[in-house]
């Protein structure tokens, strides 16, 4: 399970899985199967994908504590970068497909739509993490790297707020993601996270 070949294959599979939504949605748009407003279709798809990948990234630490499998820590950077990538596509879709690069409308929107600001702040957080997700930056930042990347918790909260503000009538989907976020956060409470290894042992996971 931890031979270099298996781990390489695992990383390639994760890469392909993370790429597949982009390929699928692009194909749907190209085949005119994305409805009368393809830009909106991509916008919503990319945004949701960024959130899901962000949640998956945050599940890696508890999972590796539970199982001690190297594979989970090995894909953390990759998944984090994918979350940033889809968030960037989400913003680009908004600017290009919805606004048609009409920046006067952007300024009006920013003034009126607080969730645009919240979304942009979340993206800045992801950008900071993406820019410092390389060996050089880790070396330079040293002990400060870890606290800096705790900004991911703030990003998650901002993303959920951004999403919450967009929902108009049915909170079901949002509630599901928020619940997942709360669960992942509670697994980080010391009282719980320190018990994960022994729980993993009892379940035969490690």
């Amino acid at each position: 399970m931890s031979s270099p070949r298996v781990l390489l294959l695992w990383r390639v599979l994760v890469f392909m899985a993370a790429l597949s939504p982009l390929v699928y949605w692009s194909t749907q748009v190209a085949l005119q199967q994305a409805g009368p407003e393809p830009g909106k279709y991509l916008l919503l798809g990319f945004g949701l994908c960024a959130l899901v990948i962000l949640l998956l990234t945050l599940s890696l630490t508890p999972l590796s504590k539970l199982t001690r499998w190297k594979g989970f820590t090995l894909i953390r950077r990759q998944l984090g970068l994918w979350a940033f990538f889809y968030a960037l596509l989400h913003l680009s879709s908004y600017l290009v497909f919805i606004l048609g690069l009409d920046f006067s409308v952007l300024l009006q929107d920013i003034a009126r739509r607080p969730y645009v600001i919240v979304g942009m702040l979340a993206l800045v957080g992801l950008l900071v993490m993406a820019l410092t997700s390389n060996r050089w930056a880790m070396r330079r930042l040293g002990k400060r790297w870890k606290p800096l990347h705790k900004v991911v918790y703030l990003v998650l909260a901002l993303v959920l707020l951004h999403f919450f503000w967009v929902v108009r009538a049915d909170m079901t989907d949002w509630a599901g993601y928020a619940l997942a976020a709360v669960a992942l956060m509670s697994l980080r409470l010391p009282a719980i996270s320190t018990r994960l290894p022994s729980l993993g042992k009892r379940l035969g996971l490690r």
């Binding site: 748009v29 409805g35 407003e37 393809p38 830009g39 290009v96 497909f97 048609g100 009126r112 969730y115």
Partner: peptide, 23 residues
């Protein structure tokens, strides 16, 4: 009169395409 969360000054006439919001 704008919606509190977005402007009502313009609209996107559907169907539109990726690079032309048809505003």
């Amino acid at each position: 009169v704008d919606h509190p969360r977005w402007s009502q000054a313009t609209e996107r006439r559907l169907p539109n395409s990726l690079f032309n919001p048809n505003r």
